[in-house]
Design a protein around this nucleic acid. Sequence first.
DNA 1: TAGGCCATCTGGTCCT
DNA 2: AGGACCAGATGGCCTA
Length: 351
Amino acid sequence: MTRSVRDEQASVESEEQQELRSPTGGEPERGGGGEEEEEDHLHHLEDDDDDDDDEEEEEEEEEEEDGENKPKRRGPKKKKMTKARMQRFKIRRMKANARERNRMHGLNDALESLRKVVPCYSKTQKLSKIETLRLAKNYIWALSEILRSGKAPDLMSFVQALCKGLSQPTTNLVAGCLQLNPRTFLPEQTPDLPAHLPPAGPAAYPGHFSYQSPGLTAGLPSPPYGTMEPSHIFNQVKGQPYGPLEPFFDGVLVSDGPAFDPPLSPPLSINGNFSSSFKHEAVTAADYDKSFSFSVHYGGGGAGGHAAIYGGGGSNPRCGELQVDGLMGYDGHSHHERLMNAQLNAIFHDS
DNA sequence: TAGGCCATCTGGTCCT
DNA sequence: AGGACCAGATGGCCTA
């Protein structure tokens, strides 16, 4: 499920509250256990340092007065918890808590980094941890498939791969990033990814991903959607405008002006159903030459909109045409078109 | 109100 | 011995 950043703020707040509750930096009062419980369990604590047990001289384990038939405990004798020991224990515990907090913060930072390189990053609608991991797994798998097969997948399969095993809200979010209707690419419901992962091997993916995804019954969530920005696809690195796939964009972006816009680009301008399948199999090998590029042609508007994604050399714009029916009309902005081209190139370009 | 998600505390275990 | 890592417990916040 997606969640808002308010949670984050709440957590920060709770941290502050803790500080208030325990000025020394730790041991907030907790519901069930609380202070009493801690005190209780402290009595069972085996303390380590006995050097400074000044006052009360080590009453070594006052013999359990309940000397009934209980077997004597083995092991090192428990020492009575003096105030000094208690103090040391608390300090130790506080330090351990602080370390654990930092550790978890580091983990969350790493997760946040992952969110940013995975498709569908939104500052306002964060993916949950588990969904981020799932999406990342799917993303890695999908990209690996492209590299392994050397073939361009169709968009539907690619999106299906991304959404495999994701929750419905997350799937909707991904769909929103692509301005797709989830119903159009999520025909079946399947519980979890590993079960559907086809066996590895060249024969496993004859030209498309065989991903299945959880079924969707709901439409798109309300805006704001996240975006499928180019940097997600290219793992864009600072100072490396196009990322590792830069050579693929020769003659595509350069001719069209500046490279990419900063992160959080506007949503892709594809709307509506992809009711007809792409015909990218018609693209011949010759079409996938160095200068291969997609360009999106937006339909005339309305439900009857028709858009075609063209692939092919510059001489013949209709080479490798990908027909997409039902696209909502869109007044093509060169900016959007550029983004779309880049993204589609990243997805479909034959490596 | 239930359920999901999260941060934090805590004690145990393993490693250096 | 101390730190890292882990999993369970707990409570807060948010949404349907």
